[in-house]
Structure formats: structure tokens, C-alpha cells
């Protein structure tokens, strides 16, 4: 009888990978967006299994609540729904599939031949307070730069989408 975390890992890994395959294979852009939603949920669950509770919540809030809604807005605004032309075509499947398979094989080869610096994981530790302390002590400069990046992105997005 395998452990519960093992079973959960396989379930969530299959959800993540399976829906990611649907994302790249379906012709309907809307189906891709919904599959991406499920795939991101699977990744959030994997984050929980990796004891990154704060990251899992951030993933759900930012990716699913923010980026995905933005993507669906983009789909709605850039396809003519009345034409039922919400489908997308694929360009050059076979070279792309060969190239990606090659990259995948190389990645797997590198992953399994490298001797990673592994340590035994620390059990049951909450991370939110550690992240908060690190953000305001050793990571305070990246934190401030990140806020500037967000501000610039906001201004840039407004500038791009403004009517001339």
C-alpha cells in the first residue's frame, strides 16, 4: 500500500500534465483556457504537497484569479464570436513536435544524470512568516524593484491600450 502523499502526487501530476496536453492540443482557444485553469490548479496542489502553502495560495489568486481572467478577456476581445471563429490553427506540427521531443529528451537526460545536492526535507514547517521576514530583510531590494516593475507594467498597459 503506497503512502497517501504518493497517491496524491500522482493524481495531481496527471491532472497537471493531462490538462496541459489538452491546452496544447485542442483547436478551440476557449477549451485551452479552461484546461490551463485546471492545469494551474494541479500545480497549486503540487505546491501544497511541496509544503509551499503561501505559494499555492498565491498561485490560485494570481494565476487563476488574475492571469487566466485576463487571457479569457483577450480571447473574447480578439476573436469574432459571431463568426464562430474561436478556433486556432496549428502551424507546422511535426517539426515542432520533433524539436520539443528533442529538448524533452535532453532535459530528462540531464535531470537524471546530474548529481543534485539533495538534503532531507524538513517536516511540517509553515512558510508564511519566513517569507514575510525574508521579504523585508534580505530580499528588500528585489521587493521594491518588483513594486516598480508592477507600476511600470500598469502604466505601460494603460498607455498601449489607450485610444490615440
Amino acid at each position: 500500500m503506497p503512502e497517501l502523499t504518493t497517491i496524491l502526487f500522482y493524481i495531481f501530476a496527471f491532472i497537471t500534465v493531462g490538462f496541459a496536453i489538452i491546452v496544447v492540443s485542442t483547436k478551440n482557444v476557449m477549451y485551452s483556457a479552461v484546461s490551463l485553469f485546471m492545469s494551474l490548479f494541479g500545480i497549486a496542489a503540487l505546491f501544497l504537497l511541496l509544503r509551499a502553502d503561501f505559494l499555492a495560495l498565491t498561485q490560485v489568486m494570481v494565476y487563476i484569479g488574475g492571469i487566466l481572467v485576463l487571457l479569457i478577456f483577450g480571447i473574447m476581445l480578439t476573436t469574432k464570436i459571431t463568426d464562430a471563429e474561436i478556433k486556432t490553427n496549428n502551424l507546422s506540427y511535426i517539426p515542432a513536435a520533433f524539436f520539443t521531443t528533442g529538448i524533452f529528451v535532453i532535459l530528462i537526460f540531464v535531470l537524471y544524470t546530474t548529481k543534485w545536492n539533495q538534503k532531507t526535507p524538513i517536516q511540517n514547517e509553515e512558510t508564511i512568516s519566513q517569507i514575510g521576514k525574508a521579504l523585508l530583510s534580505s530580499y528588500v531590494l528585489p521587493f521594491e524593484i518588483a513594486s516598480i516593475v508592477l507600476l511600470v507594467a500598469l502604466v505601460g498597459a494603460i498607455m498601449f491600450s489607450r485610444k490615440k
Binding site: V17, A20, I103, L107
Partner: peptide, 13 residues
Amino acid sequence: LFSLGLYAMISRK
């Protein structure tokens, strides 16, 4: 996931 994302980036219009 990386490979699938790369495939989407290459093959989609």
C-alpha cells in the same frame, strides 16, 4: 510542462 509550453509556443498561430 516545459516541453508542452515550448510546443505551444512553436506550433500555435
